[in-house]
Nucleic acid binder design. Structure first.
Lengths: 328, 328
DNA sequence: CAACCGACGGCAAGGGGTTGCCATGTTGTT
DNA sequence: AACAACATGGCAACCCCTTGCCGTCGGTTG
């Protein structure tokens, strides 16, 4: 069933297993002649080192786990791709775990995998701070789309991003913004709201908040109705593109014209934002780079003390499409 | 660094390590009293079995690898989710691997992971048949969106699906269909073409093929232009939704009205198909179930002989939206 | 020519579990 | 009461690979 072991190679090459092991991992430790012979025999037999046996002794598993809050959110695709690419370069394996928006599932999966991975990349984690610190005490952790002192993190610069959104809307004449908030346990939801308030104040416009809403398309209907009910706002800023798209659909159904009657902005710049009608103005960014940076941090985590865990903030890009326009 | 071991638990509970091991894996093998004590001590110490050590001896890793041809295709989301769900139920870990549309990358990754996983789920594999058989000789393999005698597979029933597409179009008055083909090394592309031909013949309509095209949105422009250039067809059937959406965009740019001038059909029913304008008529199916079924097969693979590997074909669903209409 | 030294291989001890087999202690059978 | 049949727990080997330490051997150095 399993392939040849180091013993088979050793026997065939007529050396000790330790020599075979060293031929691979410490090339300078054996003579060139012996090394060549061992490698030749190994190649012939199709020998592949068993990663488990190796991990058992070294404690290094060459594997990192990426936990995402909800894998059906297309926003994660690019993130995953970036993480996967960076991991592969270092010959690391990426383990993908779906938390299904459930803190309990997230916690259980992490506990289960903890002994088997070198670190965790937690994207939009819904776990409370103390749990995150607990995990970070056991294993290297990098947070994505969340920040917490003592733990490394990678986020898109939402402060600057929200400023861009507000500036954009303000320049189009909007004076009353409404934020359709994300889940209560989403750090992003809180931060975006704070950033929007600050930006709004600086720009001299007002912003209110309703919600929370689960950031999925099918919640967009409720969000849109709530927004219309709240009244007064000429621009809606949805927690993410999925919600925004749901809102657009509902507004269309109710005969509210976008952007003539109301403008809509989302976050993430998912693929569908470019395809829907009207196109969705949204705050994007290089999500591939976020994933890449997170894994990068994770792989170099060993050398850093808990108190100087880096916080990386990557630039955002406001993508203008048809869903925002001048007030009439 | 690492948590307590079975030795710590054994010492604390004043039993042998074998007893601790059995308390977990063979509950009936130890007395209830002993088992309870061991489990209590283990819980108190926060003991978690080391999966590597376990895998080393048993050869079971409780891990399956899912290889996808291109992770940026949203179509995989549901597939991944289904696979992940099924794996979790059995406390299996899902390893996600991106092949980036490159057979070489796919092959290398599979070889690298082979000693560390219990099986492979290969989605839309771009590898030639002989490579697949080679892999299947080492490890259990389940193919998704591909069939090959001797290897288990799960596909959506494209034969019936294509019949539905053709019937739909024929009933709307279309007599000349054009298939915008997928990549040359895509099994699906070949099968869909064959199924379309058969269905067209039965329905008494004509179908032609152009391509191959890389199934991405940005190739839709070229595909649309080639289709218009080919002339004559009143309905376009694109290899997948990404390509179809690209086609829709290009047609809109060129002022060709959909569905008035030409109808467009896609495959996969990705999320974006519902939000683009017009909505894309597409052949979908329960992709979650495909992922679920594939993992199911993989977990029960050990008991089957190579010659009776099941071929599962799940039903498709033709989703009608605005991109198809009657000929004028 | 003795004392040293570096290069190279081998021995053997883990690392954390699992499991076949054996030695007890219990219960059941006649 | 004597013996068979279980039920339990422990011992120790084993899974595959890594690595500290030691022995050997040819070559330097003084």
């Amino acid at each position: 069933m399993s392939g040849p072991t180091i013993y088979d190679v050793a026997a065939a090459a007529e050396v000790a297993t330790s020599t075979v092991s060293r031929a691979f991992s410490q090339p300078g430790r054996v003579s060139a002649a012996t090394r060549d012979r061992v490698l030749a025999v190994a190649a012939e037999l199709g020998y592949r080192p068993n990663p488990h046996a190796r991990a058992l002794l070294s404690g290094k598993h060459h594997t990192v786990a990426m936990v995402v809050s909800d894998i059906t959110n297309p926003h994660y695709f690019e993130l995953i791709r970036g993480a996967e690419m960076r991991a592969r370069v270092s010959e690391y394996t990426l383990l993908l775990v779906n938390a299904e928006e459930s803190p309990r599932v997230e916690w259980e999966q992490i506990q289960r995998l903890a002994p088997a991975v070198d670190g965790f990349m937690l994207s939009a984690s819904r776990l409370p701070d103390e749990n995150l610190l607990q995990i970070a005490a056991q294993r290297p952790v990098v947070l994505v789309s969340r920040e917490l002192p003592g733990i490394a993190s990678v986020v898109l610069d939402h402060v600057e991003g929200c400023r861009q959104i507000v500036s954009h809307l303000a320049s189009l004449g909007h004076r009353d913004l409404l934020y359709l908030a994300g889940p209560r346990n989403s750090w992003m939801a809180g931060t975006r709201w704070a950033a929007l308030q600050t930006a709004a104040e600086q720009a001299g416009v007002s912003v209110r908040r309703i919600g929370p809403f689960t950031p999925k398309v099918n919640q967009g209907g409720a969000a849109a109705d709530a927004a219309l009910n709240a009244g007064g706002a000429t621009a809606l800023v949805a927690h993410n593109d999925l919600l925004a798209i749901g809102v657009l659909q509902r507004l269309a159904t109710r005969g509210v014209r976008v952007p003539d009657d109301v403008s809509v902005v989302g976050f993430d710049d998912i693929f569908a934002a470019d395809v829907c009608t009207p196109g969705l103005t949204t705050l994007g960014g290089a999500h591939v780079d976020v994933g890449r940076a997170a894994v990068e941090l994770l792989l170099t985590a060993g050398s850093r003390a808990p108190e100087d865990q880096p916080r990386v903030a990557l630039p955002t890009e406001l993508v203008l499409r048809g869903s925002t326009g001048a007030t009439t």
